[in-house]
Nucleic acid binder design. Structure first.
Lengths: 200, 200
DNA sequence: ACCTGAACACCGTTCAAGT
DNA sequence: ACCTGAACACCGTTCAAGT
């Protein structure tokens, strides 16, 4: 019964990353409600007060998670985007990528869109949002310059298209649509956005 | 220093409603994170264990709040709807009513759309959702029969239009749009839905 | 600079016991 | 039938003290 080899030194070394990684796993597996700093500390093999050195409170950890999410979402969309594609399939590809991200990271996405009450983190989130809607905005502005879509405030167009995609994702994650059903419907949604409900 | 007149008998009499009303006020004033059964019990002048007689756990109270919200939302939309209006203004009116409800009840709406993990409450919520998207579905189906909108799966059309409205509400409540800005933009959003992004 | 241990003020939930 | 009071097992946060 000798002492186990001490695999962890007094200083963890990378506690901040470990906590964030654990939080993301808990978020995915058990939901935001199950997130506990004390539990994360336990999983990291560290005292319950240690997280306080890296995150001033629980909300700070949640904000860090959300910022992380914006990073990943922006990367996913940028990788999915293919400027060589015509407008409709290009938008469809982006919409599908967004929906896939939403399905894979439903709880995280909720965190990302959660109302922030302190103005400081609200600004950080705004930057993250800009990164993700920015791509969509550029695609639409480009199409607009080529005369492929109507001349209207591009910011407004972007928000409307973004709202449709996000609303679809919300409905899907909320269980109102099956995942496959939603992914299969993406083409129709984009078609509807481009051509409208009215007969032509 | 005589005893205060005992305004509350041993049996509260209407504790369930009192708790729900208090919860709705807290939700509006301080957000879902600030909701505490013990605090609600204190406000109701009752022991901290008393809520357990009316709600088996905290989630049960949240579910009751959400169902309540679906009721109110359905009423709001039904009152706002004017079947005498042509399609576009009729949809605009409904969209504005939904956005107003969302702005006034942002935290409640989040609760209403929150993923439910137990299948029992998930079904209750589905009924509530059906009540609210049902109206939209009937409006669109009617327009479809009159040939005012394209022939496509009406359920799919409804979900897409609903997604756009809900996404707009989410963006607005999340602070990406100002309230007035969003309300002023409703006309454009509905116009876009009906006519599409492509030039005609 | 980073972490511990104890302390404080909260939670939700349960259950015998009271009215 | 409805509520209380005590108990249990959790939280987040703070702060002196340790390494």
């Amino acid at each position: 019964m000798g002492p186990m080899p001490e695999s962890r030194p007094y200083h963890h070394g990378d506690l901040r990353s470990t906590l964030l990684a654990g939080a993301e796993r808990t978020l995915r597996d058990k939901g935001a409600g199950a997130l506990s700093l004390r539990e994360l500390a336990r999983e990291a093999g560290v005292s319950h007060a240690a997280p306080g050195r890296h995150f001033k409170d629980k909300q700070a950890l949640l904000n860090a998670l959300a910022l992380n999410g914006y990073d990943r979402l922006a990367r996913v969309l940028e990788e999915a985007d293919d400027p060589a594609l015509p407008l409709q399939p290009r938008l469809t590809t982006l919409a599908r990528a967004y929906l896939l991200f939403a399905i894979d990271n439903a709880e995280l996405l909720e965190l990302m869109y959660a109302r922030k009450h302190d103005p400081e983190s609200a600004e950080q989130m705004a930057v993250g949002v800009d990164r993700t809607v920015g791509l969509l905005g550029r695609v639409l502005s480009g199409a607009q310059q080529r005369g492929e879509i109507i001349e209207a405030d591009p910011h407004h167009l972007t928000l409307t298209v973004g709202a449709t995609l996000h609303g679809t994702a919300t409905f899907t994650c909320g269980g109102m649509l099956g995942h496959e059903e939603a992914l299969a419907g993406v083409d129709h949604v984009v078609h509807l956005l481009l051509h409208g409900l009215k007969p032509r």
